[in-house]
């Protein structure tokens, strides 16, 4: 987004100064002149329902829809359409849309791209949910596994009674196994809470000699996040299997280490209890519709968009799919405004 707060707008000063080091200013002089002269004039335009330029309005709407939903420039037919919004339903059932939204969800859950498709269970399961119009909560608690496909080059989704969304898939468990000395999967517990409720807490960096064991985590500076708060990471991690590393470096997970815990105002006995509780909350619904706004607008919903946000949540509650929730927002007249 073009924002002044963090990174300013168009050509932020800090960025521009960095830019000056290696770019021949003479080469870009014309654009800078126009930027300066037109900065005020060029801002302040949008497509509106009462636009005196309906052709332009439709072109802008077509462009916005196509780029947002498909990641592609609008084709000639869409650009010329009298009502580009009529194409939304077909866009929402296109492979390009499945890929784009699944990629977006993947990026929300993982802080960096995976090196290989075999390490991307979130993408493949999210895409399955979107493409098959499955209940969105099953991305987190559904009885699925995401395993290597027969070609060995990608992952495939299969039904598995022992599944728990992507949280019990091997690539995800390994990626977020963490480095706790006793194999306590604090990192996994945090990501379960974050992915479902949007909750964020910055990871602390160990100081030399600092006790990072369970005893150390009970110290005053640490115990709130690890034991006392609603998201108490050690309590959440207690219901997860522990990581074990063999002499050859192979990582496995030991389910015999699971212990019941009291968290989220419940007695939790398993990772399924934990995630089911998280997904049954208002925070989960809120986070999913905020994700929808971030996908469609590149920013969270604002105060004036609260009613539309509530419609998104209502659609998610009624239909259960992310498809329905997203359709409500993108089909609203304000999207092409």
């Amino acid at each position: 987004m073009l924002q002044a707060r963090a990174d300013c707008t168009f050509v932020p000063l800090a960025c521009a100064l960095q830019f000056c080091r290696f770019v021949n200013l003479r080469r870009i002089a014309p654009v800078l002149v126009l930027l300066a002269a037109g900065a005020v004039a060029l801002r302040g335009r949008s497509a509106k329902a009462d636009d005196p330029d309906p052709k332009g309005r439709n072109e802008r709407c077509a462009t916005r829809l196509s780029i947002t939903l498909l990641g592609k420039s609008a084709d000639a037919a869409l650009l010329a359409a009298a009502k580009p919004e009529d194409s939304i339903d077909s866009m929402l059932t296109s492979p390009a849309f499945y890929d784009r939204l699944a990629s977006f969800v993947n990026a929300q859950s993982n802080g960096a791209p995976a090196a290989s498709p075999l390490q991307d269970p979130v993408y493949f399961l999210a895409r399955h949910m979107i493409e098959q119009r499955k209940p969105w909560r099953d991305l987190y608690i559904g009885a699925y596994n995401v395993r290597a496909a027969t070609d060995g080059k990608s992952l495939e989704v299969v039904e598995d009674a022992n599944g728990l969304g992507y949280f019990r898939t091997a690539p995800w468990m390994v990626r977020y196994a963490g480095n706790e000395s006793e194999g306590v999967r604090i990192s996994a517990a945090y990501h379960m809470i974050h992915d479902t409720t949007g909750f964020q807490v910055p990871a602390s960096v160990a100081k030399p000699g600092e006790d990072r064991t369970a005893t150390g985590r009970k110290a005053d500076a640490c115990k709130n996040c690890h034991f006392d708060s609603w998201f108490a990471l050690d309590k959440a991690a207690a219901v997860l299997s522990r990581k074990k590393v063999a002499a050859d470096g192979t990582v496995t997970f030991d389910p015999t280490t699971i212990t019941a815990t009291t968290l989220l105002n419940k007695n939790l006995a398993s990772d399924k209890d934990l995630v089911t509780t998280l997904v049954s909350s208002d925070a989960w619904k809120f986070t999913q519709c905020r994700m929808v706004f971030n996908f469609l607008y590149g920013r969270p919903e604002n105060q004036c968009e609260a009613p539309l946000f509530d419609q998104c949540v209502a659609a998610l509650e009624k239909d259960g799919t992310i498809n329905a929730a997203l359709a409500v927002v993108v089909k609203d007249a304000s999207f092409c405004q």
Partner: peptide
């Protein structure tokens, strides 16, 4: 050769862009 002008323009555009929160909003 518009280096001088471009530097001024660069600063001007940056200042316009960062002048206020309202200015950050495109439309």
């Amino acid at each position: 050769s518009l280096t001088t002008v471009s530097l001024a323009a660069l600063l001007a555009s940056s200042l316009v862009a960062c002048a206020s929160e309202e200015d950050a909003l495109e439309t």
